[in-house]
Amino acid sequence: MQGFMTRETLLKWAPVLVLIFLLLVFPIFEMTNAWAKGKEHIYLLDSRFLSIRNLARIAISATPALMVALGVTFIILMGSIDLSMEGTVSVTAVGFAYAFLWLGGTLASWAWLAIPLALLIGAAIGLINGIVHVKLRIPSFMASLAMGFVGTGFALLLTGGDRVRVEDPLFRALLTVRWMNFPIMVYVAAAFLLLMWFIQTRTKLGRNFYAVGGGEELAAASGLNVNRVRILGFMLAGICYGMGGLMAVGKIGIAETVTGANFMFISITAVVVGGTALWGGIGGVLNTLVGVLIVFVINNGMVVIGLPSYIQSAVLGILVIVAVVLSTDRRSVSFVK
């Protein structure tokens, strides 16, 4: 049963190889461009793409999406899907901003309470999402899509279309203060990733996600309360979306209805491209990190080598399909709707 280059091992490492390939291909593009222009000495270190400044830029832009993608990772691990992130991110971001301003407007006051509040709001939306999906027995893609619409609508209701500015320098330190060239928010994201990794590998809940994704009926027959695991999964995802909302506000200092826009596609792309199978049971948060990096390296690299940014969504769209096709074991699927 064990082989060196089995399908499983190949799939496991493919995303990393793709990332490494991308990290090399963009500098090479740059170098050939430079060479074409007649530059004589070409060093890899001259690459604008590989400069610390640019890498920090990639890290910053990837941070909110990573938070969101971590959340949806757990859902996809269970073989479900969550399309509610755009609404949830917007609601948590707007909710946070209003609470933050109302409680004093600076982290040095009671306004810090707005942070756990935002995560709570995320968990609450996830709870509703999970209950609608599990108790009303509605397929998750539809339940969560509808919840996403409700969320965006609710955010719009809260703001009335206005932008809410969060200008507290202490909070904005997330972006403005840098350690070793990277802003604090990157370290916060790294810490959160570690926490999620811990949940995935060390806790009962985390392992139960794999059991549900690997064989829901078998897991239920072994006495696992699958419905509870599902609802908890959606709550955990909601908390991650809350983190995503906080990071998005931290990044631009504004909370509005469209704060959550585009997160749906980017996060699902990242998860699937990272190697977490849409059918559940395989993959995890580290895959998602790789996936998010792939998405944002492509995004950034295309700009660096001078390609228009609008191609990005087409590239990602095709990438998703390729990733799903590669991770599908066709013998095990009878038909697909």
Binding site: Y210, A211, G213, G214, G215, L218, A221, G281, I282
Partner: peptide
Amino acid sequence: EQSLITNL
């Protein structure tokens, strides 16, 4: 039927 969950 094999009743083990293979990804665990």
